[in-house]
Amino acid sequence: MVDCSHISLMLGPFEDRALEPHEYQEVAFHLARCEQCTAELADYSTLGRELRTMLTPELPLAGFKDAVMKRIENLPVPLSVRLGRFFGGLGDFFPSGLGLTTAAAVAAALTVVLVGPYAQMAVNRSAPAHEIAKVERAVEAVPTAGIASLRQDVAEMEEEPEPMISKLESDIPSVAVWNEPKMGTTVIWLPDQP
C-alpha cells in the first residue's frame, strides 16, 4: 500500500483536479482503502468551499448603469460642441447654405435687438410696478416732520449741474464771467473798450 504521507501531498491537487490521470487513479485507489486520507480530503473540500464563499463577495450592481449614465450626462459640454450641435441641427432643417445664412442673420438681429440703443431705451422706459409701489409705501411711511428735509434732499439731488467754460478767448480785456445757477444762466460780459 502506498504511504499516506505520499498521498497526503497529492490530496490538494486531487481536490482541485490538477493531477495527471495516473496520479489521480493512484490517489483514488488509496482513498478507497484509507479512512484517514478520506477524512483529510473531506477537510480539504470543506476548507476550499469556505474560502470560495469568503472570497466571492456579492457586488451590488443594481442601479450601477444608471449612475454611470447620469454622471456622463452631467459632464460639462464645451461651447464649441454646443454651437456645433446647434448649427448641425439647423443644417438638418435647411439646405446647408441657407441654414448658415439664416443662422448668421438671426444672430445679427438678436445682437442688434439685445445690445442696441433701442433695447436700452426700452429698459430705461419700463419701470417695474412693484418698485414704484415700494417707493410709494416708503414715502407714506415718512413722518410729516421729515418731509421738509426730504424735499430739500431731493431738490439738492435734482439740482442741475453747473455750466463750465473750458476756453475763453477775446481781444477785449477784463471780460467778466459768472453763473446764475438758479436761472440756469451763464453770463459773459464784454465791457466797452476805452
Partner: peptide, 8 residues
C-alpha cells in the same frame, strides 16, 4: 470778438 467752449 469772442471765442468760447462751454458746457451748459
Amino acid at each position: 470778438m469772442l471765442t468760447t467752449d462751454l458746457k451748459m
